[in-house]
């Protein structure tokens, strides 16, 4: 009886291992964040092209970088953020795709064509874009929410009710904006001021973490939480009083891009996917799922009304958007020093 069971299990395993991949015809392997890619959009792509899509997930740009550097892993499409594109290019990890020659390139919004992180769109096309600021519970704090002052120098009702992200570059980047300094700062004096600011803020911070933002805000554990705009929209859906701020000092922005790794096995299919993604309808479907804006002109037509009206997605025109680039070695060292000191 036991032997039969063991035999059955091993037989099952062997068959799944053998046939799991062998039966596939045309393949496309995408590497992205979880829940970030619309299943509906992928089904449409599979139906139109007959290509089978497999979606794998990673957690940070750094993991993606380390993995591609060590020889890939067999992905055809990766989704690096804009500040990582120059690094990937420098390290020779991406394939030239010459996006302007692809079908549908004209649909990319002019402000995202040939961006500073990828002149001439040689290696990537813009995909989804968002901002990083904070969500704040307006039942707890009634004043003006559009400033970082309430986060770094909180009024009594917010003291001890603040949550920051768990990653050094995002927290320090925001402090640099508040102090009016440049991103990727290489000045020891200015970074010392950043550290003093963060040290002074620390007693009022309840937690430094990027997981479970929704839970902490809704439970009332914290009243102010660093947040991404698409996530902030989900939080506001659950509690309308929790609003997303557009601080007047400036807001960090990012763009996640589609790119093809150098050693991609299915280059043609990857190109097909890029062209597919540049069609307004497909970009619209994608945004409806992820709740982030995209870089395709005319895709708004295909978005649902809630998304079109959402203040989190539609950035007010007077807001200063800051796209930070890849930082040089010296500033990385300074960031690391500030972070270690802060949390020693």
């Amino acid at each position: 009886m036991k032997k039969i069971a063991i035999l059955a299990v091993s037989l099952f395993l062997v068959t799944t291992l053998c046939f799991g991949n062998a039966l596939a015809e045309e393949n496309l392997f995408i590497y992205s964040w979880t829940d970030y890619t619309s299943p509906e959009m992928l089904k449409k792509f599979e139906k139109e092209t007959g290509i089978k899509v497999t979606l794998d997930t990673f957690d940070t740009n750094e993991s993606l970088l380390a993995k591609l550097k060590a020889g890939g892993g067999g992905y055809d499409i990766v989704v690096p953020s804009h500040n990582f594109i120059p690094i990937f290019v420098d390290e020779g990890l991406l394939m030239e795709i010459n996006a302007p020659e692809l079908k549908g390139y004209e649909n990319i919004m002019s402000k995202y064509k040939s961006p500073p992180w990828d002149p001439g769109n040689k290696y990537s096309i813009p995909w989804q874009t968002g901002t990083t600021s904070f969500s704040i519970n307006t039942d707890v704090y009634k004043g003006d929410i559009d400033t970082y002052k309430i986060m770094f120098d909180p009024p009594p009702e917010l003291q001890g009710k603040i949550a920051m992200f768990g990653s050094a570059d995002e927290v320090i980047g925001m402090a640099l904006i508040y102090l009016g300094f440049d991103q990727c700062n290489q000045s020891s004096d200015e970074m010392k001021k950043v550290m003093d600011l963060l040290m002074a803020q620390k007693p009022y911070v309840k937690v430094y973490n990027s997981d479970g933002i929704l839970e902490r805000l809704l439970s009332g554990d914290v009243a102010l939480h660093m947040n991404w705009n698409g996530y902030a929209l989900r939080v506001r859906n659950e509690n309308p009083a929790i609003k997303y701020a557009y601080p007047k000092e400036g807001v960090m922005s990012w763009m996640d891009n589609l790119a093809v790794p150098k050693d991609a096995q299915n280059k043609e299919n990857a190109i097909k996917f890029l062209e597919f993604m540049m069609q307004p309808e497909n970009a619209g479907i994608q945004s409806n799922f992820a709740r982030y804006a995209n870089g395709i002109e005319g895709s708004a037509e295909f978005m649902d009304d809630e998304l079109k009206a959402a203040p989190e997605i539609n950035v007010p025109s007077n807001v200063n958007l800051i796209f930070s680039l890849a930082c040089p070695e010296k500033s990385i060292k300074l960031y690391d020093k500030v972070w270690t000191k802060l949390k020693q």
Binding site: G166, K202, V205, K206, V207, Y208, N209, D211, G212, T340, K343, Q344
Partner: peptide, 15 residues
């Protein structure tokens, strides 16, 4: 340490 302790102090693992 990060989720229950608030991540205010680094531990060897995170370091």
């Amino acid at each position: 340490p990060n989720l229950l302790g608030g991540g205010k102090k680094l531990m060897i693992g995170s370091l």
